[in-house]
Simulated scan of single mutants.
Amino acid sequence: MSATTHTAPTTSTSRLDRAVTAMEAAGVRALLIGPGADLRHLIGYDTHPLERMTLLVAAADGNHLLVVPELERARAEAAGVGVPVHGFGETDDPFALVAAHLDGGRADEAIGVGDQLWARFVLGLQDAMPGATWTPASAVTRQVRMAKTPEEVAGLRAAGRAIDAVHAQVPGLLRPGRTEDEVGRDIAEAMLAAGHDAIDFVIVGSGPNGASPHHETSDRVIQAGDAVVVDIGGPVDGWFSDCTRCYVVGEEPEGYAEAYAVLKAAQQAAVDHVRPGVTAESVDRAARQVITDAGYGEAFIHRTGHGIGLEVHEEPYIVEGNDLVLTEGMTFSIEPGIYLEGRFGMRLEDIVAVTADGVERLNAADHDRVMVPLNP
């Protein structure tokens, strides 16, 4: 997946308030959050990570602070981040500034460090606060981000509609003689035209390339009789789309129809299983059992899904061993796959949202394999 800057969704101080509540419950005194999805989520500030540190100090006592290089202070203030902004000069020590704000850190209360904060900054902060206890910030931020508000689900629903519109155009792009790269470029253009802020990934796996789940694209020429996996996604107003559909150019390969029927049944079984109170791993089992019973168990080589929101991959992860209980507002992919090396692959992916009493699919593109005629 590419590293791109995305539009920051509209935010409110309620997210910081929810983070404070989660910090108090976890015994975390402060969160130290650098550029990335957590920063965008908590205060709506979107910026690139640079060699000069940008850091949100979100404190359990409400004494929040955004530390930025002085040359970016005006930009941060103009963004309306809702917390005081402190700029530091080229010769100032930003680590000492943060330590002073937190009274040097206390051993009896943990400080949560952003999971994606660069190591050079983490080490500098630890040197400045040697008595502090450190923990991953995700212990708190995952609680705030996993269960989406109705407005946040609406953002993902809009992203789902945008990517569905792109998949509707894919059959017109697939024909013998075109390369995966060529099709991928056309899909990327269609994604931008459909309202995506950026292209995060485009996978066009034709023929045997479809058996590599993260193949992306290549100069392979699409041929008659190829099965093609198309997995595409990117942000729409900051909220990610991610949808996979399967296409067949001309006559389908031997055994493809039978395997696809199993795949479709497995995805439906997992979707039907989703509701508040079940565990993430039980959704994985629902899909995997169908595929295993049909004799394709060893060909399903990845988890059933991943959370999605401000990042294309975030918690909750739908995988064996994750006993997290699902609650209303959680959003994630359901994407079982079957991969037969040297022959073809297939994956069927929708984004779903847990509702008060069940589940909502956020993608409506056709779930059948799409047969692309050779002479449309």
Results as ranks from 00 to 15, higher is better:
T141Q: 06
V140G: 05
R73M: 10
P69L: 13
W134E: 10
R106H: 15
L117V: 03
P84S: 06
R145G: 06
V67I: 15
E70L: 13
A119W: 03
A79E: 06
L56V: 11
L66K: 05
P130Q: 10
F88E: 03
D115H: 00
G82H: 02
V81A: 07
R75P: 03
L66P: 00
L66V: 12
L66M: 07
E77M: 08
I111E: 01
A78Y: 01
F88N: 05
A59V: 09
V85M: 02
Q143T: 13
H101F: 11
H64V: 13
G124A: 05
A76F: 06
G87D: 03
P136G: 08
Q143G: 12
R142T: 13
H64P: 05
G131N: 12
L117A: 02
E77N: 06
G112H: 05
F88Q: 04
T91R: 01
Q143I: 12
G131L: 06
D127P: 00
A139E: 15
G80Q: 04
A128K: 04
A139M: 12
A96Y: 00
Q143P: 00
Q116M: 10
T91W: 01
T133C: 02
Q116A: 11
A78Q: 12
W118R: 12
L125D: 04
M53L: 15
D61E: 14
V67P: 01
F95N: 09
P136L: 11
D93Q: 12
A58T: 07
D115T: 11
M146H: 04
V57R: 00
D61W: 02
A78D: 14
L97E: 12
A139D: 13
V68F: 03
T133K: 02
N63E: 15
R73I: 09
E72T: 11
G80I: 08
P130T: 11
G82F: 04
E70G: 06
H64C: 09
A96L: 14
D61F: 03
V81N: 04
L125T: 05
Q143R: 11
Q116R: 08
N63M: 08
G62A: 13
F88G: 03
L102M: 09
T54F: 01
P136A: 13
V83T: 05
R145K: 15
F95D: 10
R120F: 10
P136Q: 09
P94G: 11
H86P: 01
A139P: 00
P94A: 14
V140M: 07
A132L: 10
Q116W: 05
A110I: 00
R142Y: 07
A59M: 07
G124V: 00
G87Y: 00
